[in-house]
Design a protein around this nucleic acid. Structure first.
Lengths: 354, 354
DNA sequence: CTCGGTTGGGCAACCGTTTTCTTAACCGCC
DNA sequence: GGCGGTTAAGAAAACGGTTGCCCAACCGAG
């Protein structure tokens, strides 16, 4: 209770330890040479006063703030959050604090935040968010390093970290092939959405390599459960003999599952179903639980943070960095074919069903 | 391209405008008295150099940092996010930046963040997150104001902002009564969860005031779709003549809808269904779309931020502040009774179906 | 004993801004 | 024309650290 109201300054520490401020500073930061005894005395004094260096003062002459800004371009959504958390975790371990800036898809707001961050002398900036396309760079030339996470910059020289969505689609198809499926349909989001394009292309390419094609052209629509239901209905109406549906998102897949269930098709016995995003609340509540692709957004955020820390420390890694997706197998693609041993070996291996 | 690497300082501005630093400072901050012409000259110079005051330097002698810390107790989840966004929005409008701290339900981590925030001299702290119960205060006595948002502190003197969940349950029941339902069941989350308790009690109390009771004791389980499916099955097996189910969450309600659909019960013709949280992705994808209660978490976050700003400016508002829930009516509770005009007037009015 | 080398620790400048105090100039009035 | 009162603007002292530089003391060697 006798604690002083005003937090202790380094001169309090210095006078308690009987040294000058300069010496106290060196003692606490492990700089300069001094008798071990002196150093210990200063450290004890700091401890007793529960001294913690004033960040503003330190910033003022080192130039470093040990803060970074995190700007989302769209409003912070389901995809940005894990990225942010991963980044925050990694940065926090590096003693850095994170400024949260919700851009809300408003360029004015975004530029305002940028100015604010710069006047706060952040050591670096992470830009994240989801967009239909790569986004233009946040500014032409900045005095601090910038890393784009999940979203990517249109400037190939900018450092971006993005999931390998084509590779994810490849894993999906390989998994379906490995479990004996051959007549595969693809239902996904809007045609102008980059993710939808990449995933569809990745799926088609992988099938082509196996000498197969989709049973029908990719069905583009919305990222919604409703579209999944509608598309599944269309698929049934078309009368194709489909034995698997690869969906561009878990929500779409869930819609598909719902319609198929009503139509009396059993999953996975009659059809295998696979989603994308591995959004637990969707994938697990789906009937049956949904095999999906996990983009490991938290790991992606962590990776972005690490790249930013490196850049801050003078080791920039410009360019586009991709990270693999992980296939998470659940009941919706359980193997029900009678001759599992005839499935092509290499495909099983590359599916990495762990 | 000719831009200087080092950002402009106030002395750059001063010399460009031909005045002293002190005068420049006054001109830019609207302090002191000076010729309008001089002020304008300084402002123009600042503009030309795109000068932005160094936050650290300003902090150093005003003591104010114009930053606040936001700590989540649990890991940042679906509930914390809107709260955070609302708070961030309100604080940003007040020129304050927000430090993001993900506590991950780890007390050590939380205390570490607290120390960090204090050494950064934040002007205030917002604590948010979801818990089964009120949480103990984050620290005994802090040099800065703290506001708890969504979660509340066990110390009644602490400033907390929470949704009026009992009032929400009341609105749900009143809406069901107003639409002619009388035989109402309640399926909700874990019995030890404060929200489950409060919502169940609110529902029971409201029914009691109308001289009614739940058709069965509240069914406590989990906050999951699976539990909703199971509970609905139990309800059907019990053979009660239920005409409405009020659920403790949208996920549970969705599970209920699913089981009822399979069992051939029509919603809303045979049963009305109402959820809680108004989680769009659940409420809208449900078949049929789900009437639900919206806690207006973003508004709650905004309110918490405003209270914090007031407290920072010397006008604290200790104690627990509640905010109303809003009923969002969708198809799952559409009126299908044959004599709508006989529904009791006051109940309709208080249901506020906007 | 003297001298050069080493080392512990103090002094003071500096980071960029705000703010108080002071001074110089200018005003109108008697 | 001198004088008090007002006002514009400058000088300088903080704010709390860090760091380069310098000095004194102490060491061992010749």
């Amino acid at each position: 209770m006798g604690k002083p109201e005003r937090p202790a300054t380094i001169s309090d520490v210095a006078s308690l330890a009987g040294v000058s401020v300069g010496t106290a500073s060196k003692a606490l930061n492990g700089r300069g040479s001094m008798r071990p005894d002196t150093r210990r005395r200063v450290q004890e004094a700091a401890q007793r006063l529960s001294f913690h260096a004033n960040a503003a003062a330190r910033t003022l002459n080192t130039g470093r703030t040990y803060t970074v800004g995190m700007i989302t371009t769209d409003s912070i959504g389901r995809f940005s959050i894990p990225v942010m958390l991963g980044a925050e975790d990694s940065l926090g371990a590096g003693q850095m604090s994170v400024f949260l800036c919700d851009g809300r898809d408003d360029p004015i707001r975004e530029q305002y935040y940028l100015k604010t961050l710069l006047s706060r002398n952040v050591d670096g900036i992470i830009v994240t968010g989801r967009r239909t396309q790569a986004r233009p760079p946040i500014a032409a030339a900045l005095p601090v390093p910038v890393v784009y996470a999940f979203i990517s910059s249109t400037d190939p020289e900018d450092c971006s970290v993005v999931p390998d969505e084509a590779g994810g689609a490849r894993k999906a198809i390989e998994h379906l092939l490995a479990t004996g499926r051959r007549r595969i349909a693809h239902i996904t989001g809007p045609e102008h959405h980059h993710s939808a394009q990449v995933r569809a292309t990745g799926a088609a390419d992988t099938l082509a390599e196996a000498g197969l094609t989709l049973v029908a052209p990719p069905m583009f629509g919305e990222w919604s459960e409703l579209w999944g239901r509608q598309a599944a209905g269309m698929l049934l109406a078309m009368g194709h003999d489909v034995d698997a549906v690869f969906c561009g998102s878990d929500q779409i897949a869930r819609g598909v599952a719902s319609t198929l269930g009503v139509a009396g098709r059993r999953i996975p016995e009659d059809l295998a179903l696979i989603g994308f995003d591995n959004w637990d609340v969707m994938a697990l509540a789906c009937q049956p639980p949904l095999t999906s692709l996990d983009m490991d957004l938290e790991g992606l955020g962590r990776a972005a943070a690490d790249l930013l820390l490196d850049a801050i420390n003078g080791r920039p890694s410009p360019g586009r960095h991709t990270r693999p997706c992980r296939l998470v197998v659940r009941e919706s693609t359980a193997i029900v074919v009678s001759q599992p041993s005839t499935a092509p070996g290499p495909l099983i291996a590359s599916a990495r069903p762990e």
